[in-house]
């Protein structure tokens, strides 16, 4: 089946646009951030569309107020701004308040990781997984292609509670053209082979495939898991999957060792006493101002396919299989 690559946001916004025609309780709020599909929402559903301007703090509070009045709210802005500019509004007006007043607010952040390549570190987003998953009642979702992003709409509109969707700003090749992932699992197993398994989220799933190809050239096969739901994934199924391996490699387009996907897996593996070693691949070296393509920047900060392949090979050499040592 041929599926044309699309922007994640267009796939999601199209679903929202369509649903708004039959569901009068959906309200769309943006902080002066657009897209061609958004123009259709604005034109066809003007009564349930508001642009608050460049004002993310107000975006969140307005969203909370609308949700308190019974609307299912989608709030839309650039990822670092809709998470970090207004983090206290998110904490107080969405996370805290929804414990007492269940409400449906979905934050759509566009521009995960290095998506806004040339705009530099203000527009790049390497902290949001850490921050958003620190809010205990938030759902955090990080799709790797537009098919998954579009599917998340059902979850958003059906389930009460605050949610954060971390979308890439670039058009990425479709991963799930043949078969959609199971939302209820929260992750999808792409390859189940070898003794090493890469667990990636968002854009890094694409990198994981590139790394797997390079490793194959060195005679190494790896498993690949797409963890697209960072909060509601099936604990039992993921434990069973990870237990098959000797080494787990976490891959995220966020700072390494700062509470993101790596911390999630450390905690999960430790809590479940899964007998594996863990290699964390994430952004190293803090904030940087170098220019380049996304691929070039990724190699510089330690998350590009070449550097990750080297690190996995080095890790395999320097740390012989833990399970084999035990036996």
């Amino acid at each position: 089946m041929l599926v044309k690559p699309r922007a994640m946001r267009d796939a999601l916004l199209e679903q929202i646009h369509r649903a708004m025609a039959s569901d009068p309780s959906i309200f769309f709020v943006t902080a002066d951030f657009g897209s061609p599909v958004l123009d259709r929402i604005r034109a066809d559903h003007a009564n349930r569309f508001v642009n608050v301007g460049i004002a993310e703090q107000n975006l969140i509070n307005i969203s909370a107020g609308l949700a308190l009045e019974g609307y299912k709210v989608f709030a839309y802005a650039i990822a670092p701004f809709i998470t970090m500019r207004c983090f206290e509004q998110i904490r107080v007006s969405l996370a805290l308040l929804s414990e007492v007043r269940p409400m449906n607010v979905n934050l759509i952040g566009v521009g995960a990781g290095y998506s806004y390549v040339v705009s530099g570190p203000t527009h790049q987003c390497y902290e949001d997984i850490t921050l958003m998953r620190a809010l205990p009642n938030f759902q955090v979702m990080s799709p790797a292609d537009h098919i998954t992003a579009g599917m998340l709409f059902d979850r958003c509109v059906r389930e009460l509670g605050p949610k954060y969707l971390r979308l890439d700003a670039q058009v990425l090749p479709p991963i799930y053209a043949e078969a959609a992932p199971k939302l209820a699992d929260g992750f999808h197993v792409h390859r189940r082979e070898g003794s090493i398994c890469i667990v990636a989220t968002g854009y890094m799933l694409h990198t994981a495939f590139a790394v797997a190809e390079r490793l194959r050239g060195s005679g190494q096969t790896v498993g690949i898991i797409d963890l697209f739901d960072l909060t509601r994934f099936s604990r039992d199924r993921l434990r069973d999957e990870l237990s098959r391996y000797q080494t787990i490699v976490s891959m995220e387009e966020g700072f390494a060792g700062r509470g993101g996907l790596d911390a999630l897996l450390y905690n999960f593996i430790g809590h479940n006493a899964i007998d594996v070693k863990l290699l964390n691949i994430g952004v190293e070296g803090g904030y940087r101002f170098e220019l380049g393509t996304r691929a070039e920047l990724h190699e510089q900060v330690g998350i590009g396919p070449d550097v990750v392949t080297r690190r996995i090979l080095d890790f395999s050499k320097s740390s012989p299989s833990f399970k084999n040592d035990q036996r």
């Binding site: 309200f27 508001v50 703090q57 107000n58 969140i60 509070n61 307005i62 969203s63 909370a64 107020g65 609308l66 949700a67 308190l68 009045e69 019974g70 609307y71 509004q89 007006s93």
Partner: peptide
């Protein structure tokens, strides 16, 4: 005030 503005709009 921001939350109330959202309520008023809704």
């Amino acid at each position: 005030l921001g939350v109330a503005s959202g309520m008023a709009l809704g």
